[in-house]
């Protein structure tokens, strides 16, 4: 019961003192003893170049040790016009957010302050956020009110437009980076395009290069495919192409492959089972080209083109891929 009355009495005292505090000018109060309040701030990196309308945010964290408590009515008032030497400085508090966490021996107050610039000038001029004066009351001695000064943050306000001749170099500041257009999207596109270009160049280098270096890419049929693409589209070119494909088969099988031992070749190279029919067609073409001109092959009217596609199929099989179907005469 005693504790209840004591708290009630303290609340009444604080109410009265806060009303009195409104009447008091905080700047005239004595400073709080050193070590009672500790402060940390999160200030904007940009200190210069503000123009009318800019909003500047600042975060202040105060830790106040008992028995002192913050008089919350002394917090900065939104919209209050601050003056310096009787002249409105043109920087107003636009918004304040206050949160506190109380502990047994101390309390932490977090203030998020948003100031807005309402001044302009034809030349750059100094300005400041704050200072703000906060009142603290000693809960053990309700008549003892003290102040704590939240230090100001110096900034510079710039004109919206430049009048007259200005030497830019003299007005450059290390605190203000040049205004840049956002180009993130363009950068991403450029990187993608550069990547595609590099890959394309690698592919071209591989295709037209003499040697292959990727795994399963330098096979006999891959070389043959590149070689027969360069052959002329006539009878002599066709003969050379057929011979080249025979050579590739022989090298792949490590023995001479004929129509009679194709099944053995397929058994030892099952990747080629996908094109069993096409291999049979190839040996039919080879028979007509090299051994029996009167024989009829089944590869259509353009055997050179068919052979090129067949070699590509063989190359795919060699690489462990499933080749696309090669229709006769296409």
């Amino acid at each position: 019961m005693t504790k209840y009355f004591r708290d009630l009495l303290l609340a009444a005292i604080l109410s009265i003192t806060s009303l009195q505090a409104l009447a008091l000018d905080s700047q005239n109060l004595p400073d709080v003893d050193e070590g009672i309040v500790s402060i940390s701030t999160v200030d904007p990196f940009k200190r210069v170049g503000y123009t009318v309308g800019d909003v500047i945010e600042r975060e202040v964290t105060l830790t106040i040790k008992a028995p002192y408590k913050l008089v919350e009515t002394s917090l900065p008032i939104v919209g209050y016009e601050k003056r310096y030497k009787g002249k409105v400085i043109g920087i107003e508090l636009k918004e304040i957010q206050h949160s506190k966490v109380e502990h047994k021996d101390y309390a932490t107050h977090q203030l998020k302050l948003a100031y807005q610039v309402f001044t302009n000038s034809v030349v750059a001029k100094n300005a400041a956020l704050g200072p703000e004066y906060l009142q603290l009351v000693n809960t053990k001695n309700s008549k003892q009110l003290v102040k704590y000064r939240v230090p100001s943050l110096d900034i510079a306000v710039s004109p919206i437009a430049i009048f007259g001749q200005v030497k830019v170099e003299n007005n450059m500041s290390t605190f203000l980076e040049p205004l840049l257009l956002k180009n993130d999207q363009e950068k991403t596109r450029l990187k993608l395009a550069a990547g595609a270009l590099v890959l394309s160049l690698l592919a071209l280098l591989y295709i037209f290069g003499k040697h292959a270096w990727l795994p399963r890419m330098g096979g006999n049929f891959a070389k043959t495919y590149r070689a027969i693409k360069k052959l002329p589209h006539n009878d002599e070119g066709l003969k050379q192409a057929v011979a080249a494909v025979h050579h590739a088969f022989n090298q792949t099988a490590k023995v001479s492959v004929f129509n009679g031992n194709v099944d053995e070749f397929l058994a030892s190279n099952p990747n080629f089972l996908h094109i069993k029919n096409e291999i049979s067609q190839f040996f039919g073409l080879s028979r007509q080209v090299y051994f029996e001109p009167s024989a009829v092959h089944s590869v259509g009217s353009n055997p050179t083109l068919w052979l090129l596609k067949f070699t590509k199929q063989c190359r795919d099989c060699e690489r462990g891929l499933i080749p696309t179907t090669n229709r006769a005469g296409v």
Binding site: F258, N259, G260, R287, F291, E292, S294, A295
Partner: peptide, 12 residues
């Protein structure tokens, strides 16, 4: 039923 000799005929 062929009109010309193939390598397979020789192999046979």
């Amino acid at each position: 039923n062929r009109n010309a000799v193939l390598p397979d005929d020789i192999h046979a």
